[in-house]
Design a protein around this nucleic acid. Structure first.
Length: 495
RNA sequence: GGUCCGAUGGCCGAGUGGCUAGGCUCAGCUCUGCAAAAGCUGCUACAGCGGUUCGAAUCCGCUUCGGACCUCCA
């Protein structure tokens, strides 16, 4: 097994990854709240964990990857006083809340597929785990870390912090939190402003509600993740991930709930937080109005975009930065990514056609390159460094193709293993060009006609009829077919 | 106001005590009928000011600027 190091948000240190139960790994990632379309910032987080999932599997772990769908209990505005986001949207659109849930869950899945983000092993929903959540609340009440007021149940942070640490993950101290908490004008039933809701009472007009020992109501947002992670991964598991913005209060509350319910102190060994996607240095967020939907990005239909970019370009762009750093989104960066990815994918195509030489090229070590790729990923999933290594191989491939250097069969096979493994399996960058060529058949009329045109042009060149040769090339270029002259004759490619 | 993070060449973006990140752009060269592609070469940067050190972009301090969280957000 590879010596993998992970930046652990809980300790703030880079630590060697040791699975609790190798080769099995349990990983939980907070999924979306399905009340509106996902934007690119959301995509970045799920992409980051897609890479982590893929790499863990790549190096031999068997990962149970749980990523939830939040379909109830996430409130608009102030954590415990607002309206349920999904309920609100249902009211606005005059449909059933579950129609909202279905619509945006579908959208989410479509987007994940477009960006080649793998499905988790289990994708549980909050509404599917109401009973488990009620059970957890009862346990927390039994352990005396929560209290009920008029059909609402609140978690007592002060009471909890007497027995266990609270705020470890986000580096917060109870007293500092208190002094910075907004005054809720005493209209809250909470005994302490730090307390948060485990169960909320619902009146008759509330759309989503369930019976409970405290009356009709619905669960608090933080609870579902506590319950679903422990249900499918156990009281202690390996990795918990999510966006940086969920660190506090969401993840902090999640930990407190688990500890309070099960009295197990350490619930998660490695916390991983993905950083934000920014636009002009500011976090991409719906409230800022700077969010892009994936569709706007692909079509280029957005005021900040000059044109559209393919999903794989966007995926590559995001992987050129490390998941733990903010990443700034701009036209120039996307153009650079597009060109870089094209270079990379073309080299992989070239690699398939390379003719091996007898002698091994002693100046080139494919195994060193392979080691570098592993080392990059072992160092906290450093995709930008991995990509830099992959470009090193691109030079070898192109040089070999041009006859400048030699590569024998073993070296070519070694390179194929690297690119299939790291570019394909780990980074999940599929060659879009190859896919479209496959779908068009390959041996059809157009292919034959193009081959004929290129042959005619070659004849024209042989006869020094350059005007005729250029005419063929220019006309084809206007049709989206590029003709290039190489060492071994001319070839064409379709964009 | 509190907590934390960041500031890297024309752009994006890694790295983190001494050794080339990488991609894109730009200029020159090779190849080529021309072009494209590819290869080679160059532009050699680490916010500012102090300090530690034989040596700092990398450690420490201060300053300036930016961001995130503290309320919903991936």
């Amino acid at each position: 097994m590879q010596p993998l190091q992970i930046q652990n948000s809980l300790t703030g240190k880079k630590e060697v990854f040791e699975a609790l139960n190798p080769p099995n790994v349990g990983m939980y990632v907070c999924g979306p709240t399905v009340y509106s379309n996902v934007h690119l910032g959301n995509v970045r987080t799920f992409l980051s964990f897609d890479i982590i999932y893929r790499y863990l599997e790549f190096i031999g772990y068997k990962v149970r990857y749980v990523r939830n769908i939040t379909d109830v209990g996430h409130l608009v505005g102030d954590a415990d006083e607002g309206e349920d986001k999904i309920g609100k949207m249902a009211r606005l659109q005059k449909v059933e809340p579950m129609e909202i849930v279905q619509k945006y869950t579908n959208d989410f899945h479509d987007v994940m597929r477009v960006f080649n983000i793998l499905s988790p092993s289990i994708e549980p929903t909050a509404t599917g785990h109401i009973i488990e959540q009620i059970t957890a609340i009862e346990k927390i009440l039994d352990n005396d870390y929560a209290y009920e007021v008029n059909g609402n149940v609140y978690f007592s942070v002060r009471r909890f912090s007497d027995d266990y640490p609270y705020g470890e993950l986000s580096g917060r101290k109870i007293d500092e939190l208190l002094s910075n908490t907004r005054d809720l004008d005493g209209q809250s039933e909470k005994r302490d402003p730090l307390d948060f809701a485990l169960w909320k009472k619902a009146d008759e007009t509330h759309l989503m509600q369930w019976p409970s020992p405290w009356g009709m109501g619905f669960p608090g947002w933080h609870l579902e993740c506590s319950v679903m992670s422990t249900k499918y991964l156990g009281n202690r598991f390996d990795i918990h991930g999510g966006g940086m913005d969920l660190k506090f209060p969401h993840h902090e509350c999640e930990i407190a709930q688990n500890v309070a319910a099960n009295k197990v102190e350490k619930t998660v060994n490695y916390w991983i937080h993905g950083n934000m996607l920014t636009v002009n240095g500011r976090k991409m967020a719906k409230s800022e109005g700077n969010g892009f939907t994936p569709e706007e990005l692909i079509t280029g239909n957005h005021k900040l975009l000059e044109r559209g970019y393919s999903p794989m370009t966007v995926r590559f762009f995001m992987l050129m930065g490390h998941y733990g750093s903010t990443l700034d989104f701009s036209n120039d960066a996307l153009i650079a990514a597009e060109k870089g990815l094209t270079k990379l994918t073309k080299a992989v195509e070239t690699l398939q056609k390379l003719t091996p030489t007898e002698k091994e090229n002693k100046n080139i070590s494919v195994s060193d390159l392979s080691d570098k790729c592993y080392a990059a990923m072992n160092d906290d999933f450093n995709t930008p460094v991995l990509i830099a290594s992959l470009f090193e191989g691109v030079k070898w491939i192109n040089s070999a193709s041009d006859g400048r250097i030699e590569l024998n069969q073993d070296q070519i096979d070694g390179l194929k293993t690297i690119y299939t493994g790291f570019l394909g399996n780990v980074l999940g960058l599929e060659n879009e060009d190859l896919n479209t060529e496959k779908s068009s058949g390959g041996e059809d009329l157009a292919t034959n006609l193009l081959d004929l045109l290129v042959e005619l042009r070659t004849d024209a060149k042989a006869n020094k009829d350059y005007a005729g040769a250029d005419r063929i090339r220019n006309t084809l270029s206007d049709l989206g077919v590029n003709v290039t002259d190489g060492k071994d004759g001319s070839s064409w490619s379709h964009e």
